[in-house]
């Protein structure tokens, strides 16, 4: 099944987040709980852990700023 990962709301005030780094590459097998990318919001830089195990295809580019809820990657679980 393909699931879409969206820009999470990482803090109370967060409206959008900037992808600062991808910690995995397209086609990588990832496991639930593994940090997959880092975002910078108004407050701080945080690593987002994968909610699923599967194979990832990033959508968002580094330095791209996206609103909360926008697609960031897909995972084939």
């Amino acid at each position: 099944m393909r699931v879409t990962l969206k820009m999470p709301k990482g803090a109370v005030s967060m409206q959008e987040g900037k992808i600062v780094e991808w910690l995995v590459e397209a086609g990588d097998a990832i496991t639930k709980g593994q940090p997959i990318y880092a975002i910078e919001s108004e407050k701080a830089t945080i690593d987002i852990e994968s909610p699923f195990t599967g194979v990832i295809t990033p959508i968002a580019k580094v330095d791209e700023t996206l609103p909360v809820g926008a697609p960031v990657a897909t995972v084939e679980t």
Partner: peptide, 13 residues
């Protein structure tokens, strides 16, 4: 719940 938050499906503190 945190999985839902990380995937952007849930949005709350």
């Amino acid at each position: 719940i945190q999985q839902g938050l990380a995937a952007g499906d849930l949005q709350f503190q």
